[in-house]
Amino acid sequence: MKNSNNLFHSGERAIIKKTKEPVTIAKCQYVKHMKKFSYIVNENPSTFYFEEELQKPE
């Protein structure tokens, strides 16, 4: 999903802030009632993360 409002896109690398684990974004979805994006990562497809739980790699 390409949207100028989301921080990450499919295939992009990110880091989970809490664990410092590097991950690859598999899917991005806008959660309308929460007004924010959620992300599924290739490394753990049964869990989703919100944008504030991820960061760009340095």
Rank of each mutant, 00 (worst) to 15 (best):
I16F: 07
P57K: 15
V23E: 06
I15T: 10
I25C: 02
N5I: 01
H33R: 08
E53I: 07
N3L: 01
E21T: 13
N44I: 10
K18A: 15
S10Y: 01
K36H: 15
K2M: 02
E53M: 15
P57G: 12
M1Y: 12
N6Q: 15
I16M: 03
K56E: 10
T47P: 00
P45Q: 03
V31E: 04
I25G: 04
A26K: 13
M34T: 08
K27V: 02
F8Y: 13
S4F: 13
I16K: 05
K2C: 02
G11W: 00
Y49F: 14
P45N: 04
N5F: 11
H9R: 09
Q29R: 13
E58V: 15
C28Y: 01
F48S: 12
A26G: 07
K20G: 07
Y49T: 01
T24E: 00
F48H: 15
C28K: 09
M34Y: 09
G11R: 01
K35S: 11
T19G: 08
F50K: 07
P22T: 05
V41D: 04
P45W: 01
I15R: 13
H9E: 08
Y39S: 02
H33W: 05
E52G: 06
E12T: 06
C28L: 02
I16T: 10
N5S: 06
K56P: 02
M1D: 10
T24V: 09
V23G: 11
N3C: 07
F50L: 03
K35P: 05
P22V: 02
A26N: 13
Y30N: 08
M1E: 12
V31L: 03
M34S: 11
A26T: 03
K20W: 06
S4T: 15
E51W: 05
E12R: 06
K20F: 12
N6W: 07
F48T: 09
